[in-house]
Nucleic acid binder design. Structure first.
Length: 284
DNA sequence: TTCCAGGAGAGAG
DNA sequence: CTCTCTCATGGA
């Protein structure tokens, strides 16, 4: 299957910018497990070549990817709106076409609970082991992977099993969240209808979901581009480049949301990825 | 050996 | 309200 005329889009930057933990590059193709199937995506200019492990309808798959990859976004307009200074201008130039994904809610919620006080390679490993243990085996050609564990599967798990996957002290947070989803205490249909601040407040009711993780879920799954996850990198970036002093999370949030406006989450993603990829990011 | 990683909870003040 | 300590894990 092909998707044509995809402009202002970069698959590599989108899938390798720390918002999803489930994509692997093999040569020039990306394999990932998305909502119960393996997808293989290859970008050639403005064309995406896509294969799926299921025989789903072509137009259904195209519509899904349009949403998942945020292809309907007017990137030139959005990026122009946050292109306020030389710092972010460099990031926008270097990573032009990077999108913020619209990922599955349960997977995003669970994954970012696991992300706290942790690093990306280890988060990926934990999720891979959880999927191997609790998910379903999937194959696409010779590529084998496992679906993300359902909330039901994790709600019924033993803490020992979660610990064996490397979750550490986050095991109980993960299980509690799974049980809240299964019981209906955490209602996804309602959560998806909430505006940003209400969704964030509701998410933060869960143990293991603080302000930063809630913002990641709002931004990477619920489509709230005004969400601003403040981790050590974002804090360092704003203190160094913009405020030029030590600042609290609240000061950073207030400045950034005022300075970048309603798409501050996108601005954050470009600054975050630029700092990760460019060791000399702090130099003017 | 110590430090760090897309942090958050609990307790003290 | 803010500050500090601790939490499990593995790679640098």
């Amino acid at each position: 299957m092909h998707i044509q005329n995809v402009t202002d889009f970069n698959l590599k930057y989108t899938l390798e910018s720390g918002q999803s933990f489930r994509w692997n590059r093999v040569d020039d193709a990306y394999y990932g497990v998305v909502e119960g199937r393996i997808l293989k995506i290859c970008q050639q200019g403005t064309t995406l070549q896509v294969e799926s492990s299921t025989d789903e309808d072509v137009s259904t798959l195209a519509a899904y990817l349009h949403h998942y990859l945020d292809l309907g976004r007017d990137m030139p307009r959005l990026l122009a709106a946050v292109d306020n200074d030389a710092y972010i201008h460099r990031a926008i130039e270097k990573f032009w076409g990077m999108r913020i994904l619209n990922q599955a809610l349960w997977e995003t919620l669970a994954s970012f609970i696991l992300s706290q006080n942790n690093n990306v390679p280890r988060i990926r490993g934990i999720i891979r082991r959880l999927s191997e243990h609790f998910g379903e085996k999937l194959t696409l050609e010779r590529y084998v992977d496992y679906s993300f564990p359902s909330a039901h599967a994790l709600a019924a798990s033993q803490v020992d099993e979660l610990l064996a996957c490397g979750t550490g002290y986050r095991a109980s947070y993960l299980r509690d969240a799974a049980q809240a989803v299964v019981s209906g205490e955490l209602a996804f249909t309602q959560l998806k209808q909430f505006p940003y601040l209400e969704a964030k407040r509701e998410l933060m009711q869960r143990k293991g979901i603080g302000e930063k993780v809630a913002d990641c879920i709002c931004l990477f799954s619920l489509g709230h581009l005004e969400a601003l996850p403040i981790d050590v990198w974002i804090k360092r970036i704003f203190e160094t480049l913009y405020l030029r002093r030590q600042a609290t999370h609240r000061e950073i949030r207030e400045f950034a949301q005022n300075y970048f406006g309603e798409s501050v989450g996108y601005a954050q993603q470009y600054l975050f990825h630029y700092a990760h990829e460019e060791p000399n990011w702090a130099d003017v």
